[in-house]
């Protein structure tokens, strides 16, 4: 078993909470994990990416080879496209549709996504809206994790335990709300396929 995930977004969007939840899940299950992140300069509103690799055997490289990612999980639509060369042709792309516009030349991506969808499996989800609907507008990243979870080779119950582990310190209510968000995201993707 192995799942190679490219996590992407914009500095400050908190993609690392997604990585941390999956990391905790992997560790609970005694899986091997490597997760390379971006720190420093690129965090100031720039593009950020994390390579997350989970397997039941030791992993060598911290970086995912080109055309090898099983999943691109992006909390921002344009950023989901920046790392396409990493995606395996059989892989899936799951992205939030909420645009983060902090540059003057943000392109219209509708056509690009339509074109791409002919060849690869794409799930586009308005995670911000779904997070609001579940009563936890701050949990859109967990909605995204839920939406991507059908493409991750870890049982969803185990990912939920991972979410519990990392939000535990913030109290039961926060844990509950994040799990709700996760489930809503998962529901969205399952209803599409």
């Amino acid at each position: 078993m192995k799942t190679d995930i490219i996590l992407s977004g914009v500095g400050g969007q908190g993609i690392l909470s997604i990585a941390a939840s999956l990391g905790a899940a992997a560790l609970n299950e005694n899986y091997y994990l490597k997760q390379a992140e971006t720190h420093g300069m690129s965090q100031r509103g720039g593009a950020v990416v994390s390579h997350l690799r989970i397997a039941d055997h030791p992993i060598y490289s911290d970086l995912i080879p080109i055309s090898n990612a099983d999943l691109i999980l992006s909390v921002e639509p344009m950023e989901s496209l920046r790392y396409l060369p990493y995606l395996s042709p059989e892989g899936s792309l799951v992205t939030n549709t909420a645009e983060f516009v902090n540059i003057p030349d943000y392109p219209d991506l509708e056509e690009t996504f339509t074109e791409l969808a002919k060849n690869i499996n794409i799930i586009r989800i308005d995670a911000d809206r779904i997070a609001k609907e579940t009563g936890n507008p701050k949990a859109s990243n967990m909605v995204m994790l839920g939406a991507a979870s059908p493409f991750i080779a870890i049982h969803d119950e185990i990912i939920i335990k991972g979410i519990e582990t990392i939000f535990k310190a913030k109290g039961e209510k926060i844990v509950e709300m994040n799990i709700e968000a996760f489930k809503a995201g998962r529901e969205f993707t399952l209803s599409k396929s």
């Binding site: 914009v10 500095g11 300069m41 690129s42 965090q43 100031r44 509103g45 720039g46 593009a47 080109i66 055309s67 344009m78 950023e79 496209l81 920046r82 790392y83 396409l84 060369p85 990493y86 995606l87 042709p89 902090n102 540059i103 030349d105 943000y106 392109p107 219209d108 991506l109 690009t112 791409l116 690869i120």
Partner: peptide
């Protein structure tokens, strides 16, 4: 031999870091 990778769409704009 490497597989021909998927291409990054040309329409993408760069996103350099900026002051908060």
């Amino acid at each position: 031999e490497l597989k021909e990778p998927l291409k990054m769409p040309e329409t993408l704009a760069g996103r350099p870091p900026s002051l908060c």
